[in-house]
């Protein structure tokens, strides 16, 4: 433990799990993705705000679980020394603050505009006319529009 040659001579981490662990992680990731997709399909039919929020929350939790498995096992961060892990993860906690602060700000901006800005309020009530042309059989017209845009 005293001499540095152990570090220099063996910079490769030993891989305890081997390919078995890799495939296990793969199946976990695949399973989580399938559950995410199933929840996404279920959400298409859900109308209530609460139900949609619950499903979205579940999807976000699954997303974070996927991120954990990729970082911990594929990127092998779990096998690194704690100090190293901390220098990477602690700065990233800034993003937690940013998510909360900015989403809150966005929500508040929306409320303020709806309360005080008559233009925004009215504009957001305009029904779409030429949009979603697919359903209204105006596909040809829209295509030409896209071409002139180029």
């Amino acid at each position: 433990m005293e001499h540095s040659s152990t570090v220099a001579g063996n910079p490769v981490h030993d891989n305890h799990g081997g390919t078995k662990e890799i495939w296990r992680t793969f199946w976990i990731l695949l399973g989580l993705t399938i559950v995410e997709l199933v929840l996404g399909y279920i959400m298409i039919g859900v109308e209530s705000t609460g139900g949609r929020l619950g499903l979205k929350g579940a999807i976000i939790i699954l997303m974070l679980a996927k991120a954990f498995y990729i970082v911990a096992y594929f990127m092998h961060l779990k096998g690194e020394i704690r100090n190293l892990v901390m220098t990477i993860l602690v700065p990233l906690s800034l993003l937690l603050w940013a998510i909360i602060a900015f989403l809150y700000e966005g929500h508040s901006y929306r409320n303020n505009r709806n309360t005080y800005d008559a233009y925004t309020r009215e504009r957001s009530n305009i029904q779409s006319t030429d949009k979603k042309a697919d359903e209204k059989g105006m596909h040809e017209k829209k295509r030409t529009g896209a071409e002139t845009m180029e």
Partner: peptide, 14 residues
């Protein structure tokens, strides 16, 4: 930053 900007704008839209 990109994704948070996306979320912020989405939260500020009706």
């Amino acid at each position: 930053a990109f994704l948070i900007a996306y979320g912020t704008v989405r939260f500020s839209s009706n």
